[in-house]
Design a protein around this nucleic acid. Structure first.
Lengths: 344, 344
DNA sequence: TCACTTATGCTCAAAATGAGCATTGTGCCG
DNA sequence: CGGCACAATGCTCATTTTGAGCATAAGTGA
């Protein structure tokens, strides 16, 4: 886009020398761009993300998200992403949406040259868990990395310790203004001080833990305290991939409320309860069963099929399928999920 | 992030030669990254975007959004954006959020080398319209560029012609499948064939017009028909900035429904009706006045001040201010706007 | 003071929610 | 084969939340 260069001169910014070698593709201000994918599936009522093994710092390996650099051969960002994912995991992607572009130089501990490294993150939803693919690719329950986000079996046990440490972090500052600010954030994100837990604020919670030094990946950052063990603050991931995962979860939790995206995760036919389990898995909360099915019914999200389940205990459930037509109808529906007092 | 390079080799991807000149900052797969800002204000009940003059193709100038390349001196993407905006428009930014990263090579008519040019777009909301700054920077009513999006005075007149052309476009294909698909999209986005108009689908509408060849910026694309004149399909912008603007409007229209972001556009004190006008300006629809104020009141979004308006016709209105505390309260509120049958 | 205009208060019916209780089919177990 | 346990489904009911209007209050300008 040569107009950029014109602009540069017009605006008096960095001047672009014209002697740059065009054949080598040298640019005035190059950046390295990476593509990262959070690939989500939900099987057996558990939310899963596809992970790969990434060489760690000390020669070990750690979990990471499928990722790779954007190269000129990629016609678009999204196509590039699909290519990397298929190569690394043999998983084909269906629904894909862009998530966020991370480019924080301070944070990622990048190149020393002052060059930027961006990561364009995507969220993908897939139906089936393909067991094949490279051995290093595997599906993991996403709460393994963010255990404090799962309220389906009541308040996560890890939260007690986390809260204690967060309170200590808020209290360790002398500046009353900063302290007040920290407390407000604790209230907003973790529901402390009589605040409410908002299941969409996944990223904010992660960021807060990061700042408070409770995330091992924060090591090497300024002012990071000693992180707790993984059982409490979750298993680490390579790079800042946990942050990317947190972003994805937060986005997905928000989106299922107003767009019928859950169906991207469901098999062709399913029961209403399986659907509910999936929504619950994503949101990390339990829903009122009867009301959930009333909602789904009145929104016309599904239609019945002939089939019913069998074999399991209890009355067989009717199999339904997603009504694609809803996409063309009224304001695109979703679920306004509201946690139930009692599970089930 | 040298780990990327390791990954590359591990995965058998592009090999990185090690002889690259580190001092020049050469990268294996460099990309040019641009930063673009949609800066929004709402004064006198009109939604405005800050534009700058950009050198056009034929030596002329056209409206564009403040933008500039990401350079190594920028500590973060957002800081880089703020720097460019301040230089180009003398406008300081308050609320800023990332919008989308555009990287479609096919579309932007980029570099011939096959290098990628990404644009990371941001949405910024500002309170006051600063008249100062370079002469080329000016506030423009955003419906100037997307006239079909404004339903405040009833159905936009431009829509009739647009719909006719879109129908023609859908009908011009022989393939019945493709035709059906086009019609579905028309229904979904423009509410044709008995569909509903969803004010959030700004981008989808723009994309559709683009594909249908009704957008002058599409010139040079394959299969583009002759675009209509600007009075109907709006004034063009440089590059793909109209697409960026459409993205911003769609995002903002969605966001005001569940986050109190409108207040970023309001002065310190304002009347409820001014607030309503602002929401209406953004959403392009009219709201029921009494219900709007009931909503605002019961959500506790504002608190009264001593002041009242004067001078204007009619009963003076009480001045209110945003209650910042709501940010810490219940699920973060916003406006669920629902168009009123009759304006006012 | 009257006419006009905009701000505010209030009412009412319809729809959407949040919680439970009641019933209906199935697989299983004596 | 009768009865039980366990889910799936149906339905009720009290609240809230919407959507639409009618009515009244309080300034401005003539």
């Amino acid at each position: 886009m040569s107009a950029w260069r014109e602009r540069l001169q017009v605006d008096g910014g960095t001047t672009v020398t014209d002697r740059q070698g065009r054949d080598t593709g040298a640019l005035a201000n190059p950046s390295a761009v990476g593509l990262v994918a959070v690939i989500v599936a939900a099987t057996d009522g558990e939310p899963r993300a596809l992970t790969v093994q990434v060489p760690g710092q000390a020669g070990g390996r750690s979990d990471g998200l499928p990722a790779g650099p954007l190269v000129p051969e990629h016609p678009t960002l999204e196509r590039g992403l699909r290519a990397w994912v298929e190569r690394q995991t043999h998983q084909r992607l269906g629904y894909v949406e862009q998530l966020y572009t991370f480019g924080d130089r301070d944070r990622q501990g990048d190149e020393p040259h002052g060059l930027h490294t961006l990561s364009v993150a995507y969220l993908a939803l897939v139906r089936e868990v393909r067991p094949g693919g490279p051995a290093e690719a595997s599906w993991r329950n996403w709460y393994r990395y963010l255990p404090w986000e799962d309220f389906r079996d009541g308040r996560p046990p890890a939260l007690a310790e986390i809260e204690a440490k967060l309170l200590a972090w808020a209290g360790e500052t002398a500046d009353p203004k900063l302290r007040r600010r920290r407390e407000d954030r604790l209230s907003l994100t973790f529901g402390l001080f009589d605040g409410a837990w908002n299941e969409e604020r996944v990223l904010e919670r992660y960021e807060l833990l990061f700042e408070a030094g409770l995330i091992p990946e924060a090591q090497g950052q300024s002012g990071a305290a000693t992180p707790g063990d993984g059982a409490v603050t979750g298993q680490p991931m390579a790079f800042d991939h946990r942050r990317v995962l947190a972003t994805a979860i937060g986005r997905l939790r928000g989106k299922i409320k107003y767009r019928p995206v859950v169906f991207e995760l469901m098999p062709p036919t399913f029961t209403l309860f399986q659907l509910q389990r999936t929504v619950e898995a994503l949101s990390g909360t339990n829903l009122h069963k009867q009301n959930f099915r009333r909602l789904v019914a009145q929104q016309g999200l599904v239609e019945e099929t002939e089939g019913v389940t069998s074999g399991a205990a209890g009355r067989p459930a009717r199999l339904v399928r997603f009504r694609r037509e809803v996409l063309l109808e009224r304001p695109a529906p979703g679920f306004r999920l509201r946690p139930a007092k009692r599970p089930g």
